[in-house]
Design a protein around this nucleic acid. Structure first.
Lengths: 178, 178
DNA sequence: ACCTGAACACCGTTCAAGT
DNA sequence: ACCTGAACACCGTTCAAGT
């Protein structure tokens, strides 16, 4: 049906825009990626972006979801590995989007939708960690604490350069807690 | 001498601008504080700011130095207290400038002077922590590690809401490491 | 429903001109 | 040396008009 085809086209166009935005956000950063640049990369007029996304923050959220989904798709194959290895893997996944993490933190104050996204993201990570820490025999009452500590260390390692040994050492140190 | 008086006036005007910028940066954030708003608050024309500061990032650096100096002026009275208490105090000092921390991290990529400032800031914190950890009998070879961990935990506690007990617990945990 | 040209208010910054 | 009015190129976003 024509109606269905149109729907598919809309999804496709939105995807093109999100992919163009994703590349620019990662390569040159959120602030330096103007809506005009994104539009040009997606072969549409600048204001066309506003047909698909309420504003630039909403486009950022779409891109963030895409990145998280891509990582989560790969995660099942890591799930059975040791927790240290899993954490290092997660760290490296996030490293590719280093810049977007501080962008999210900066925009939380001005954008309620970014704030909500950030909350949900941390809730998801917390659930994932809680499940894994339980499997690894961490005492139930210590889990929220270790999950927080692990989050802090990963974020810390993301925003300050450390070599691979130091990263290993810090992650192991958190996980040795009991 | 007239020459000297002129010099004093220049310092005073620069101070007024920095104080106006500081208030706005803290209250509404760096991005939301336009150069025009800052100029109005300092009773000068917008382009006058560029006589005193090369650009908006340089004005940010001046404000950051002001904030750090204000904290460091209070620090000596804390120096003799237990390390846990010192860290909590430091955490609370930084809490007032929560937003500027992620601003700095975001701008590092685009501004070499912000990047340099950030490096120097962490070098200073590292030195301060190294001295204090030594006084507290932490083994010499463990110090760089504990200093990093403490930095990560403080930054983590700054960007994610935690209650006072949790803050205490996390800081104690890092310091218990040996 | 989907897309665009043109415009809007604003941004950081520069420049020529004034004292 | 210090300050400004006016302008520049750009920004995110809106609106009226087209298909």
């Amino acid at each position: 049906m024509a109606k269905n085809k149109r729907h598919v086209d809309k999804e496709q166009k939105a995807e093109e825009i999100e992919l163009a935005a994703m590349e620019l956000f990662i390569d040159v950063g959120f602030d330096a990626s103007s809506m005009s640049m994104i539009a040009k990369a997606a072969n549409v007029a600048p204001n066309t972006l506003y047909w698909y996304f309420k504003n630039k923050d909403d486009l950022l959220i779409a891109v963030l979801n895409r990145l998280v989904n891509a990582s989560m798709k790969l995660y099942p194959s890591m799930m059975t590995k040791p927790l240290t290895e899993q954490t290092i893997w997660l760290l490296n996944q996030f490293k590719q989007t280093k810049g977007l993490i501080s962008t999210v933190h900066t925009r939380i104050v001005h954008s309620p939708s970014i704030a909500t996204w950030h909350d949900n993201f941390h809730r998801m990570i917390e659930m994932l960690l809680t499940a894994q820490l339980t499997l690894n025999g961490i005492p139930k009452d210590k889990i929220p604490f270790v999950a927080s500590a692990l989050t802090f260390v990963v974020e810390g390692l993301l925003s300050h350069e450390h070599n691979q040994e130091e990263e290993q050492e810090m992650i192991n140190w958190v996980l040795r807690t009991q």
